[in-house]
Amino acid sequence: MSEASGLAAALAGIASLKTAEAPDAKSGCQGLHTVGREAIVEVGRVFREAGYMLEMLTALDMRAAEQAMHVVYQFNRFGAPDRHRVRVVVPAGEAVPSLADLFGSANWYEREAFDMLGVRFDGHPYLVRILTEEGADYHPLLKDFGVAPAAAEEAAGG
């Protein structure tokens, strides 16, 4: 328990971090946070020192509603789950500090988020495409990808 409260205290020390009240059980998380992008490395460090792992990292294309991308980090610890979802809102086209120095897994996760959604990570050692074909110039999971060309293709000869 002391570990969890230590984590809470450390998180409270981060100025831009906002924690949502009592998350719904359906969210699968014990803590939901939003943080400014300059503080994400600090948050990562807090979680790492508390023995958490970076379980998942992905991004959401929210440009239609908020003109921004959401980068979602999910930290969890071994043993009884204590899952924290940390969200960073980035204006479209801007970069987020990389966690690759803190977590080994962040390296590939960030590359994937870059490949799929075009989010750039500052300080990443090797930010190149990971899944799509060589020479690809698109970010497939963006909401405006594949809509218009597909319709055109259908009309042309599909």
């Binding site: 958490y52 792992m53 970076l54 379980e55 071994f78 789950p81 977590f103 080994g104 897994s105």
Partner: peptide, 26 residues
């Protein structure tokens, strides 16, 4: 230490001595 750093799960993690299994933990 790789377990935490990389978020290793499954049999690979259990071979490191950590009895973590989603079926048991959640």
């Amino acid at each position: 230490e790789l377990a935490q750093q990389f978020g290793i799960t499954g049999p690979c993690l259990r071979a490191m001595g950590m009895a973590r299994d989603v079926r048991r933990d959640e």
